[in-house]
Design a protein around this nucleic acid. Structure first.
Lengths: 183, 183
DNA sequence: CCCGGTTAGTTGCACTCTCAACGAGAGCAC
DNA sequence: GTGCTCTCGTTGAGAGTGCAACTAACCGGG
């Protein structure tokens, strides 16, 4: 996703199922999209490298730990965790397996639902998270926040928040997979 | 990457930190970061699903085809392609393998360097790309561009472009891996 | 109570990606 | 030319993830 073909086409279509103006590959509006995709790719790759180098943790693992830390009782049902980390259920099973092996979380049976399992952050896990958090937040500050003004941050928050809502909304309209409900 | 520790709700902007002020987990500036990460995750997942459903292509494959289409002669050296789609060399070898199997690209020896290989888009590949492009651009328009104003697009382009540069710059300063030169 | 349908989590398999190691060739020094 | 080193692309091994299938258990209607 870096550039998008050449041929232009500027006809207006009545496309109503989605109510959208056709986007040509040369459409200048795509610059925003390209910046978005590109910046994200580089940034997350870098943050992941830093986290991996300093703490032997992937961003997904870090995120899972964070979700657990923020949950009441520092514990969550597997599915709830999967939703928040944007992973499939099998994915979260395996991620939790790794965290358990690392002593970062404990897997316990759910008291109210015998089918269920809960992952809870251990004391050590919380410490690991605190340390990793310093690295991660430092990276976010240094690579992202430092070069974005306050006004730009507000625009990002607003516009991208709207995009996020839109993906969910259009999704349910058209009957696309829910993708799982983060937040 | 969904929320970060406590998740501050206040929208009040703190002193403009433009010089790496420590970032606390509750720093409201992180709202912009969270929106960014979240929106990207949902959006690309959705676009990938749509492309997969309609054309049996992943975003990475689509992007590779696009890079080839935009290259002079509709062909690129393997490494050049790898750089542009942000994939490792082995990754691009395998991706091209798949595209060759699908009749979308041809792998030819490089005339000027006997070690080298070139991938070139076939006639059929170009047609597949044109079709996929409609789906993809429609998705980008519908899910992203439609809900972002012109002013917001400009801010996104500017701010995220700066972020992109910054990642590269800080990277070379500190001696981090170049990550390969996409764009 | 029991029975069918649904949901929670795990597991087998397939797929994609990376890293490390490799063979082949390029390119410079001498 | 010979030799040394670097680069190009491929390959094998391994990590991470999703889908589909499976088991166990919940839940509502007879």
């Amino acid at each position: 996703m870096t550039s998008e073909l050449v041929a232009a086409r500027e006809t207006r279509a009545p496309a109503h199922a989605t109510a959208t103006i056709p986007v040509a590959p040369t459409d200048p509006r795509l610059d925003a999209w390209r910046s978005f995709v590109h910046a994200h790719a580089r940034l997350t790759r870098r943050l992941d490298e830093e986290l991996q180098a300093a703490h032997r943790l992937s961003l997904a693992e870090y995120d899972a730990m964070l979700q657990l830390a923020n949950a009441p009782g520092r514990r969550l049902r597997m599915s709830a965790l999967a939703d928040r980390v944007l992973l499939s259920r099998s994915g979260i099973t395996r991620l939790v397996d790794r965290l358990v092996a690392a002593g970062i979380v404990e897997r316990t049976a759910c008291t109210t639902d015998a089918r269920g399992a809960e992952a809870s952050l251990t004391r050590e896990g919380l410490e690991r998270l605190r340390a990793a958090s310093r690295t991660h937040l430092d990276g976010v500050g240094r690579l992202f926040l430092d070069v974005v003004t306050a006004e730009e941050r507000d625009v990002l928050t607003g516009a991208l928040g709207r995009v996020l809502d839109n993906v969910g909304r259009v999704g349910s309209e058209v009957g696309f997979a829910p993708v799982s409900g983060t937040d």
